[in-house]
Simulated scan of single mutants.
Amino acid sequence: MSKFSVRAGVAGDVAAVIGLQRATAEAPHWSDAEYAAAIGCGEGYVRRRLFVAEADGAVIGFAVGKLAGDLAELESVAVDLRMRRGGIGRALCEAVIAWCRGERAASVDLEVRAASGGAIGLYRGLGFAPVGRRQAYYSGPADDAVLMRLDLFESA
């Protein structure tokens, strides 16, 4: 695989992000407007930030972080199926975590399918710990959600 880089998303990335999320069954399927709203992070109490990974000029992954006051959430991470297991997902998560830390969030939360062992392993490797479970949270296929949290003060 060629080298990749991670950067904040720009308006020109939205079409590629939409294409990638449509090709990724486990990614949340948001509208173009929702991804566009995550560009530039915005002002106010609730803010989102889109990060993209690219290689050879193509978007190969993305992540979205959300802040509400001092609480943060890693809302979405998706990597092109052909590019997985190469550190892209980890780099995207690290970008979201760094943004949240820079915005003085106390912690970062996420939810992940219980059957997604690889993703759970990635999140544990980043310092996230399970803090709860939502029974039958996902559909198509049905699955529980594992709730995980990274305390940013302890992980600094």
Rank of each mutant, 00 (worst) to 15 (best):
K66F: 07
L67D: 04
A68G: 14
G69S: 07
G69Y: 12
A72N: 06
E73G: 03
E73V: 04
S76A: 12
A78L: 13
A78T: 10
D80G: 05
D80K: 08
M83R: 15
M83A: 13
R84W: 10
G89L: 01
R90F: 01
L92C: 05
L92A: 06
E94Q: 12
A95F: 13
V96I: 10
I97P: 05
W99R: 12
W99D: 08
W99N: 08
R101P: 08
A105I: 13
A105H: 11
S107I: 05
S107G: 08
D109Y: 11
D109W: 14
L110T: 13
L110R: 08
L110F: 15
E111M: 04
E111F: 15
V112W: 10
A115E: 03
A115T: 14
S116A: 14
G118H: 02
A119R: 00
I120Y: 02
L122K: 00
L126M: 12
L126N: 05
G127L: 00
P130T: 15
P130A: 15
V131D: 02
A136Q: 14
Y138T: 06
A142W: 12
D143H: 07
D144T: 14
D144P: 04
D144L: 13
A145Q: 07
A145M: 06
A145P: 05
V146F: 05
V146H: 01
V146A: 01
